[in-house]
């Protein structure tokens, strides 16, 4: 299958007062069209830098980032982003927030078609009837749903999610996992999900990439079988437990708390 996102041998360092601070060194990642990759790793290992590279907001010092067969050197409108902080514009209604990307990205849709599309997405995530509310009138989970709609409204090829559910309580988070499955079914996208939650990773993604501690390299890639919409019971099967055990071990290796074994490069 065609690789939609490809990251090859990326190294990147931030300049600091004490010289360059390498955050990424030997990052490899590839996601096929329609795939959904979850990226996990120790705190501060450069996961957010990874999203900026894919979005074209930053250029790597060395290495290449490819999107749909062309090299990424600057931002492109075929990307949608959502962060842990929903960053909705408080002075706009929810509907107008969702329509924001269409004011920037060239679109063939007429004004009323744009509005219809925004309304459709909002109803898809369960926000029907909240179109005219202000963000401050919505709960955290609902704001995150709106932020998701905004990331999808211009039909991006790639959806980048940087810990989008990190600040939500456990129940709301699980609700949103279900919503993600529903959205992916109706509005297909190729996704990269940065997360700290291993259960979230195996529930949503079809591959889990474990990054090592800083500077981050791709330490381990776990393919996840049987993806697609399903209920939470799936997380309590023996298959899921095995995957979680492997990932937990890999995280410990990445944190330097467990010795790396010969299986560390399983790819």
């Amino acid at each position: 299958m065609e690789k939609l996102i490809e990251i090859k041998g990326v190294r990147h360092a931030y300049p600091t007062g004490q010289g360059p601070l390498p955050v990424l060194d030997g990052l490899e990642l590839s996601v096929e069209e329609g795939g959904f990759a979850a990226v996990v790793g120790p705190s501060g290992c450069g996961k957010s830098t990874l999203t900026k590279l894919v979005a074209g907001l930053m250029k790597p010092d060395t290495g290449e980032v490819w999107l749909h067969g062309s090299r990424v050197t600057s931002p492109r409108s075929t990307v949608g982003m959502a962060f842990q902080n929903p960053v909705l514009l408080e002075w706009r209604s929810i509907l107008k927030n969702v329509m924001l990307p269409l004011e920037i990205v060239p679109t063939k849709l007429t004004r009323s078609q744009q509005e219809d599309r925004a309304r459709y997405l909002l109803s898809l995530v369960g926000l029907e009837g909240f179109e005219d509310k202000r963000p401050s009138e919505l709960s955290g989970g609902m704001r995150q749903r709106a932020s998701l709609c905004r990331a999808l409204v211009h039909q991006p090829e790639v959806l980048i999610l940087d810990e989008p559910f990190g600040a939500l309580d456990a129940f709301t988070r699980e609700d949103l996992w279900q919503t993600m499955h529903l959205v992916k079914e109706k509005e297909p996208f190729t996704g990269v999900l940065i997360t700290h939650d291993l259960r979230e990773a195996i529930f949503l993604a079809n591959q889990v990439i474990v990054l090592s501690g800083r500077p981050a390299r791709t330490q381990y890639v776990l393919p996840v079988p049987n993806t697609g919409p399903r209920d939470l019971e799936h997380l309590y099967t023996s298959e899921a437990s095995e995957m979680l055990a492997i990932l937990r071990h890999q995280i410990e290796v990445a944190q330097g708390r467990a010795p790396a074994e010969e299986t560390s490069a399983a790819e």
Partner: peptide, 12 residues
Amino acid sequence: EPEYRDILRSLG
């Protein structure tokens, strides 16, 4: 917040 900028910047 840099995220506000990033949201728009990533769209070009």
